[in-house]
Nucleic acid binder design. Sequence first.
DNA 1: CTAGGGTTAG
Length: 871
Amino acid sequence: MASTPPHCSITATTKRYQNHPYPHSQLKDHRQTHNQNPHQRWTSNQRVSLAKPPLPPSSRNAPKPAAAATTTTTQHPQIHPTFPSFQPPKSELVSDFPGRRSTRFVSKLHFGRPRTTMGTRHTSVAQEALQNVIEYGKDERALENVLLNFESRLSGSDDYVFLLRELGNRGDCKKAICCFEFAVKRERKKNEQGKLASAMISTLGRLGKVEMAKTVFEAALTEGYGNTVYAFSAIISAYGRSGYCNEAIKIFYSMKDYGLKPNLVTYNAVIDACGKGGVEFKRVLEIFDEMLRNGMQPDRITFNSLLAVCSKGGLWEAARSLSCEMVNRGIDQDIFTYNTLLDAVCKGGQLDMAFEIMSEMPAKNILPNVVTYSTMIDGYAKAGRLDDARNLFNEMKFLGISLDRVSYNTLLSIYAKLGRFEEAMDVCREMENSGIRKDVVTYNALLGGYGKQYKYDVVRNVFEEMKARHVSPNLLTYSTLIDVYSKGGLYREAMDVFREFKKAGLKADVVLYSALIDALCKNGLVESAVSLLDEMTKEGIRPNVVTYNSIIDAFGRSATTESVVVDAGQTSELQIESLSSSAVEKATKSLVADREDNQIIKIFGQLAAEKAGQAKNSGGQEMMCILGVFHKMHELEIKPNVVTFSAILNACSRCNSFEEASMLLEELRLFDNQVYGVAHGLLMGYRISLWQSLFDEVKLMDSSTASAFYNALTDMLWHFGQKRGAQLVVLEGKRRQVWENVWSESCLDLHLMSSGAARAMVHAWLLNVRAIVFEGHEVPKLLSILTGWGKHSKVVGDSTLRRAVEALLMGMGAPFRSAKCNLGRLISTGSVVASWLRESGTLKVLVLHDDRTHQENLRFGQISNLQMLQL
DNA sequence: CTAGGGTTAG
């Protein structure tokens, strides 16, 4: 067993681990220490994750949480025998699992692995020429001289192909191009010129120089040596690699016009491009079908690329079917197959299944590598199962698998997101100690992490360090910074970043616009947000569901002037600075000085002005505005997800009249009849049972998404007097553990709940205590209700929840009082509460009722169900 | 021609 590499000591537990001769017992030891010391946990509010006993890899037997196991692993999914007809996409709710949020697919730092020239038929002269070109070819002229010296001894295109490929592998595309031009000029045979062109295009593609590749390709076509399957395959691959998937597909379909028949490599390249471009699996299957129809035999790479398409969408069922199909067809599976499959299964949220698949790998003689581990670790981390992530991390180190750039960044982003900067810095140090420099991904993670913790001074320093170390900020860097600054109300800083971004010559994308739109929305400038939405559409940037969710979520908020000012002790000075009138003036002046006719700059100015206290737009015409937004969303065929539903439900809660809310709810009907049916049914007081399946789907979300939905639905019901309905929902949420540890006999923790949900829950909890009293059991000495410190509220410290719960308890005459040491905590002794519960009038105030009921007439419920089935 | 990491909504 290889000893653990020195650079692997990232966590304290690891260091301890290294001192022990027997990793297995040490791992157990580590687990005990871990449990004894809650401060060493990765996070304080992690989800229930049954920490698997970390076994040494040889005897891994994948213990699983019982509940999850029955639905995921033990009961194998239906593998469809009739390939390639796959299951239709799951419900819209599930298809937008957070794992596939990304709308950006290609901007990786390192372009593909270098293509080996080992197998090529070059001569030893070519080798010698390469050395000379590298050594003496300082500029174009010198390089040409070197080539002229070798010209007579180099034999044909094979040698030149070797040369330009090797130069490409060394990242020297200028020299490669020189070689190409030199060679192609001297070559007479069209097919030899074609070979050179294909090699050049593929080399440029690999280097990410897609524009140059295109130039070479088009020149080759005009010169008459570019119409080969190889050149087309190369340009398709180049486009795919750089994220120009549509171009790749266009070129692919144009081959017919040139009388070319795509071969296996062409098909593989276009499928790969689709995967990188996030093309829907269904559409990729059409290409795959065509491939089969044309008698092409798909190979391992075809399937691996198809799997990659599934992994983008988290389509784990389809991925499993593909894997089975490979077996059926007798196609060998390799580490790529497994890693891609695992990624798909992880992104589909089936972590236990992924673990099982990983466990089967050694038996297939495919040993998990660093990619396998980082895929799984990331999967666990995103699912909130940090214990499992940590166990795998330790296992990886135990196996002596050393971390690489990606796995360091994976780890770092986990810590940065948790705001655990000590550990994040440790990762950075370890990373650099092992010779891997911080890259743009590392820096972006740090910037986002510090920004989310309002550490703006650190953000600035990190950004400076990044530039000083010649790591170029990219679009994501700027998006992150603009988001961080505008969320914190530092519009001057945001504007500066935006200017710098413009100067860098980058083009804004949907994420950047969405961040801006969200900042506007959060500040009550919904109309500006909508106009920016128009602007981005005009610029040809397609908004996505996130963009729309921001706007929908803002509906009705501006009227209540709920703007965001985050208070964060150490940075308040910065904010005050930016809020001060001088900053506003400065911002406005620089705006005028630059005479930039740019809407975004204008908006920052507007935001700064808003901060200075100008009047806000009142929400009078917002109803029409928001309906227009929905309309546009339908028109653009942007699929809503569960966040959209939550936003609509929340918007309903902010409506003053039932009629207005109904109009909004109607929008829900257009989007998703099931969600509409449940919400509407509950609102009207129908006793419907169909909601179970809806909530089954919500359960597949991550915890915050799910709780947001439950909160929104309950709030709306409570708002419109359907309090019994609200309670039904809240109890269902509790049953499904949407809010972690809400309820014990002595304590009710409401801090993750909305005010409606919390109030419905208080009633349920007190009824439960009452039952304990009346059954003659003992009530705990001290009863407490935790409301938190308004963590859930948009304004930190403003505990809307506490006030709502306090008022509720007061109204009922419940004897709870604020705890002196903790204002968010309401307490009472068990005996006082018990005697209050025994009073004759108490039960009446505890039992909730709906304002609208249709209990007497169950037909309504049935009609509602029928309607839902029809649509 | 093939795998893993970073940004936006709640």
